[in-house]
């Protein structure tokens, strides 16, 4: 007793106590029984195929890691290069390098109706031109000295400005509206723009005023016509405002450190 009391206790001694923590003997019989039940369950229970096949495949492939990896990299490189070339060849030929400026006079523009535009004579408004993809064509007035256009650095800016006048010229030539001495673009300005609502409303209003005129006399017709004209003007003005804002991204804008509202 007195020896034990004097005995120093170290960390190793305390860890010996920890090591002596053991379950009783009967614990192991129960443990063994549970283990056999679990073992049987594990044998009976069919493991999913990916738990069996995938590790086996990985083990098999582990021997050929380097050659398979190298082959995979080569194949990926080959496919990528091939895809890139295919995409480059399939790309449309309209590019800054390929799009040489074409000088078209009003004479030559009249020879382009088939390729440049298809215009329905019945819908011969300035707004109804069917667009087709054509190379950018510049239209210049016919003069004695040829005017050369220099290629623009950005084709995206060039195409919309050049294509629409060309198409308009082509459509106008088909309709015989273009004058030989005038530039093609100016020829289209002769057709006045007409509001669509005004065209639609005219027939109905005429019928209505005819009926009321016969019933109530000519006084109503005058008043009604004046009222109708004012209404048409208001609607036309409203539509024009809407069109003006149509091209804008929105009435709310932000640029730099500013926030703008448009009313």
């Amino acid at each position: 007793m007195s020896d034990n009391r004097k005995r120093p206790v170290t960390l190793d001694d305390l860890l010996r106590v920890k090591r002596a923590e053991r379950p009783p003997k009967e614990f192991w019989s129960e443990w063994e029984r549970e283990l056999h039940v679990k073992q049987l369950a594990a044998i009976v229970e069919e493991r999913p195929w990916w738990q069996v096949r995938v590790p086996a495949l990985v083990r098999t492939m582990a021997r050929w890691q380097l050659p398979v990896g190298a082959a995979a990299v080569m194949a990926l490189t080959f496919v990528t290069v091939r895809e890139y070339r295919g995409a480059a060849e399939a790309r449309p030929q309209v590019s800054v390098e390929n799009a040489a400026p074409v000088v078209v006079t009003a004479d030559t523009a009249s020879a382009l109706p088939e390729t440049a535009a298809r215009v329905n004579p019945l819908q011969a408004d300035s707004t109804t031109v069917a667009l087709v993809t054509t190379p950018p064509v510049a239209v210049v007035p016919q003069t004695s000295t040829p005017v050369e256009t220099s290629p623009s650095p950005r084709i995206g800016e060039l195409v919309p400005h050049l294509m629409v006048p060309t198409l308009m010229v082509a459509g106008a030539n088909q309709l015989g509206m273009n004058d030989q001495n005038q530039p093609g673009v100016m020829a289209l300005d002769r057709t006045p723009a007409q509001e669509p609502l005004a065209r639609i409303a005219t027939v109905k209003d005429a019928r209505r005023s005819r009926l009321l005129d016969s019933a109530m006399g000519s006084a109503y017709a005058k008043v009604a016509n004046a009222e109708m004209t004012r209404t048409h003007d208001r609607v036309a003005s409203r539509l024009s405002d809407d069109r003006f804002y149509e091209d804008e991204p929105g009435r709310l804008g932000a640029a730099g450190d500013r926030l703008s509202f448009r009313f």
């Binding site: 034990n4 305390l14 010996r16 106590v17």
Partner: peptide, 9 residues
């Protein structure tokens, strides 16, 4: 060994 340590403590 564990019994000795416990006895000492």
């Amino acid at each position: 060994p564990a019994a000795e340590v416990i006895a000492a403590l």
